[in-house]
Nucleic acid binder design. Sequence first.
DNA 1: TAACGCGTTGCTGAAAAAGCAACATTCGAA
DNA 2: TTCGAATGTTGCTTTTTCAGCAACGCGTTA
Lengths: 327, 327
Amino acid sequence: MIENRQTRKADVPHDNEKFPAHLNSRWLYYFAQALDAGSIRTASDRLDVEPSVISRQIRQLEQALGMTLIERHGRGVRATEAGELLLDFYRERDVAEQALFGRLAELDGLQRGHISLSISEGYSDRLMSGVMNDFCARHPQLTIELNLASDNDVVRQVYEGQAHIGVAYAPRLIPGIEAVASARQPLCAIVHPDHPLTRLPLPLSLDDILKWPLGLVGHGFGIRQLIDTVEVISKRHFHASLVSNSLATLKQYVSSGNGVTFIGGVALLHEMRRGQLVALEIDHPVFAQAEAHVIVRSQRPLSPAARQLLAEITSLWPFGERRRVEW
Amino acid sequence: MIENRQTRKADVPHDNEKFPAHLNSRWLYYFAQALDAGSIRTASDRLDVEPSVISRQIRQLEQALGMTLIERHGRGVRATEAGELLLDFYRERDVAEQALFGRLAELDGLQRGHISLSISEGYSDRLMSGVMNDFCARHPQLTIELNLASDNDVVRQVYEGQAHIGVAYAPRLIPGIEAVASARQPLCAIVHPDHPLTRLPLPLSLDDILKWPLGLVGHGFGIRQLIDTVEVISKRHFHASLVSNSLATLKQYVSSGNGVTFIGGVALLHEMRRGQLVALEIDHPVFAQAEAHVIVRSQRPLSPAARQLLAEITSLWPFGERRRVEW
DNA sequence: TAACGCGTTGCTGAAAAAGCAACATTCGAA
DNA sequence: TTCGAATGTTGCTTTTTCAGCAACGCGTTA
């Protein structure tokens, strides 16, 4: 036992303590086996160990508890009153342990578990239609938490362990965060289908775009950092007529006027299909090389369920890649 | 672990088993301590053991379960999903263990326990008035079973472990039975107070007694063996007008006529006090040397409660000795 | 009474655990 | 960015615990 082990540094012989901090599982095991078999020798035959081992272990248990646990007759052993109490406890402990194993196995078999996803706004549709719906249907007993957040928050939540898996567009990758899948998804200029820009040849030049009122996402989005970067290196000033932390607001903004906003095209699948919005490629390397990432915390052991979901996400990643030709 | 320990005789390497038969308590202990402390090193400082020990024990636990239990960050450890499950189990197990210790301590403090007494008929009154009433009042949470039986049954029940303590009058002592207290209590002739025998000088001779109708206890009573013995060595014939296995019946018999019976005087305290019966000494060494015994099973560990009661019984034994002068 | 089975006890070797020191990483602050 | 402190880990040795073997004492049984 731990508390009986004498350490070298502080060797205090407090054996007079009434009860040990914890019961050695082997003591209990032999104790229960001996009582179950009716005699130490029978138990020793069953377990294929020497009778002396069992005898000694039981004695240690008795000494640790400071009370006699079994009656030693000439023909076997029987439990004393204290022994019965201990035996009942052991039995209960055993079934609890088996129940634990069952739960652990369920966790292994994806019949139990909790997965927390943190997703950049605009990816939820694609993720849901591409993977999540199917995955949830196949594992109805899993608890899946889907959290929409800004790109920076996605990274933060994954980093702090609040989310197991994150999907972010152009996030600032920091040490400790690992991108298990990436896909280049250019940042596009989003406009109404009737917008004059749609009549210009692609890719659009920055100058053409900047003639129109601009709607920008707020800071905290990976997109915004890309925009700021381009603003600096292109030596131009991006005047934002509207700044919002909601992509939906920006979509609304451009769909009801002739404004322009910068959003990854992948986030607009629905609107583009319905002909409500169009995504126009921009002639700038930074915009063109923007990437979306599926991220996890480095060296964080994921639960089996999270591992499985991650595998499915990456296998289908990027979700709309093949449809990209339609844009 | 027991099942992982390889035996020499039958070494079957079934390490591929998913879960061990039993969790090593030390593994769990370190595991819980590390998570509780937040880091292995903090736990190692608290427990005064090397960090390597904790690290290794946790790893063994993980290998035994076949799953990762803690996330190792640079600044401490955290539980995985499986780890949380295991930790919850451990916490519950711990409180159950503490509860067990509490029950064991109660058992030690006589606040809990079961005592089974087997008592020869006729001793219950004296036992109850002398010891049991007080003992029961002082330890109301003890369960005390008081079983009246014939002398031979008292011995048998104690021998077979059905009774912890026995009180028998002149029982046949067999190996394995130990008399922790004895008292010479002569077998007397019991008659009605108005019986002609009461007018004869004491001790009575056998011949005087045998002139009167005889009530005898049945076989199975220690008394009866004494009577049979005397019958043989005195070369007389004891004709029983009534044979009963109930002392109460015999008392009734002699109190309503001029019959005589042989009962230990100590069994008649009530009746003698009320003047309903008198016990007359008999002039025979076998009768005079009859002994009552408090018996237990040799080398049987008694529960603390039973030990305490036994001590009280023997300290006051024999209960009515000082009053014997009144007879 | 002798033989058998039971639990127990020294003793020896093996396995597990603990200690020690050094290492690789990670995190935080200058 | 760099340095330093802190964390978990690993190789190795020492200590402790456990298991096996043989013998003994004891109670039970034929």
